[in-house]
Amino acid sequence: MGGFENSLNALVLLANFVLVPALAYGSQLALGAVGVTLIFGILRFANFAHGDTMAFGTMVTIFCTWALQSAGISAGPLPTALLALPVGILATIALVLLTDRFVFRFYRKRRSPPVIYIVASVGVMFMLNGLVRLLIGPDDRKFTDGERFVISAREFKQSTGLAEGLSIQTTQALTIGVAILAVALLFWFLQKTRTGKSMRAFSDNEDLALLCGIDPDRVVRVAWILAAVLAVLAGVLYGLDKSFKPFIYFNLLLPFFAAAILGGIGQPVGAIVGGYIVAFTEVTATYAYKQLAVYLLPSGWVPDGLLQFLSTDYKFAISFIILVLVLLIRPTGIFRGRVL
């Protein structure tokens, strides 16, 4: 094997095990974190129920997917869940608007401190958690169907003649595509439409927004709807890419929060950048670089170990470490979010 071919193999290896998975995971985190940051910017609290909202929407989508599958309807090479997605999104929009009406609105009218909202969101989280487990159970669910790969490792090896294969799963490609589309639409909405601008104004300076005649109830409603749409997208894409398990979805709260704070809380652009940074850090820090060393180092130099910075069991630690570093070094985050 020549040195050039080794370097190519090393590149493909990195792309296959680091770049593509991290891009997909980062897209899922970005979608979730934008939802968290939107609610934060408009309602000004960290929503502990976001992970379970995501689980709820994904659950509805899964039920709907099963119904479609048993009716023999499919989306061809794409996962059937894509067809079921609108139902999940609508159900979740209804859910968050109901919880806002019956839970959060009360505290908004009384101008309660943010901690009270957090406690209330814990209540909502508990209820949703119970509901999801009651309806679909606490176990792992896989609902991916359709064509498995866009590019499979075998095809790649055959066509390039390299020892390493690059595989891109349909769900990964789909995740990245949907995320780009959703984020583009979101920014168009926030930057160009009247309602979107009024939301940015409300997030920027609530009192002045009220003086401009911006209707707070409407702004809050739109924020919930956007958060719900993004949460279901994130949840379904995550579920397609990996699998659906209520507890895991709850646990995604931490990377969401870490991404949102890293980017500057209340700043949608920040949340997206934050999502990708968290995902890339997580994947690069838990990847075992042994094989890479085999390609790049002279044969005598390759160490024995896995060459892994951190065991995969500690991937949540990455989010936390990022969070701690941000809080210590720059609490306002990259894009200067609000800090009190």
Binding site: F48, P114, I118, N251, L254, I261, I265, F316, S319
Partner: peptide, 17 residues
Amino acid sequence: GLRADYLAIATLGIAEI
């Protein structure tokens, strides 16, 4: 000393870890 939410998030994180 930062906003109230940060303690909530940091403690959520430390619990996982």
